[in-house]
Design a protein around this nucleic acid. Sequence first.
DNA 1: TTATATTATTAACATTGTTAATATATTAAA
DNA 2: TTTAATATATTAACAATGTTAATAATATAA
Lengths: 200, 200
Amino acid sequence: MDRKEIQKQRMMAYFINAAKEIITEEGVKGLTARKVGEKAGFSYATLYNYFNDIKELLAYCAFDFLEDCYKYMLGFKDDSKDSLQQLIAHSCAYFRYFAENPDLFRLVFTEDIGDIYKTLGKENKRPSVDLLLEDTLVRCARDGYISEKKVDLVGELIASSLHGKLVFYVGGRSSMSLDEMIKLIEADVRFLMEDKNEKE
Amino acid sequence: MDRKEIQKQRMMAYFINAAKEIITEEGVKGLTARKVGEKAGFSYATLYNYFNDIKELLAYCAFDFLEDCYKYMLGFKDDSKDSLQQLIAHSCAYFRYFAENPDLFRLVFTEDIGDIYKTLGKENKRPSVDLLLEDTLVRCARDGYISEKKVDLVGELIASSLHGKLVFYVGGRSSMSLDEMIKLIEADVRFLMEDKNEKE
DNA sequence: TTATATTATTAACATTGTTAATATATTAAA
DNA sequence: TTTAATATATTAACAATGTTAATAATATAA
């Protein structure tokens, strides 16, 4: 029975990885049940033995990609850096990851993949990217950039404005370039953090 | 030749309105070429004489819905109101419109409808909802809530954080209720505006 | 009234997600 | 080891989709 479970997990991983590859190469719209089956080395109907439907498979991919984003962000982590600089770096990295992979943004944030995120939210399970950004912000608070009690509000503001900008950039609703966006994000973060420092 | 153009516009309006009705009733996913044709009183292939593809039809709908949102926001306009209150009211109205019509949000901001928004952006044409929010913010600046030179940055922050929250709410990525979201938006706006007032 | 151009309709195609029926392989029992 | 039972994979099939080409109907011009 344990052996069964292992095999099942392995089969699911085959399909998930196949799906991730296809999404990376051809986008979410390029993903079809038949392509996933072929790429995983099975018939197109086999994945229905492991996933209720294509949405469920997509949900697994979404989580995986969000974890990949976390790994990407870690590449910009440097504890010797000033905390505000670190916050800016992490924010920009987050933006960049999805800006350069628009289909991943759509999948992770806008595609209809059922109620999984809501369920996780109610269990207070937050994705690692969230935690990383929060940690960085708390460091900023300790360094006096911002008062402790404002951490929640400012963190939430940074996060939501990042996602708002991503919607516009990724959805082609803005004519701004990636570099302009990044500059704007830096300005945003500075603005949100520096109000305590200016005394005049 | 002018008569021709009028007839063409009218035909397009038939299809656009049919599509808008279907989207309102059944969501973007419920919209099919065949349903649009039937609802408009034509065969399913006729719309291809007026639109290159379904995406183009969707783009027209998106613009229309965004204009509808503007009208909705105007219902909350009250010049006797304090400018900050007005800004909060408009921000919340904007959020509410799309939060209560998730499919409209998807259509207007996340659906793939070609490069029309980018084109408009380069012509510096901004949707009326944008202008209304900006006007309100300028009023706030005149009332001393914020310095003139910060208007752009703060305006951009409000807008992007609104859209970020919408992504989460509409995409089911947050477990927050609508009321909680609205409260958060109010807190955000206050926070972004009041830093000039607190002297301590 | 006839000839021409415009516009609408029907028929058809390839693709899609998904399911039911069937075949194959794996495990348990004799 | 052979047989029976179970689990898993495959094929065939369905209805629905966007879109196009061929055809029919209509409006316009001569």
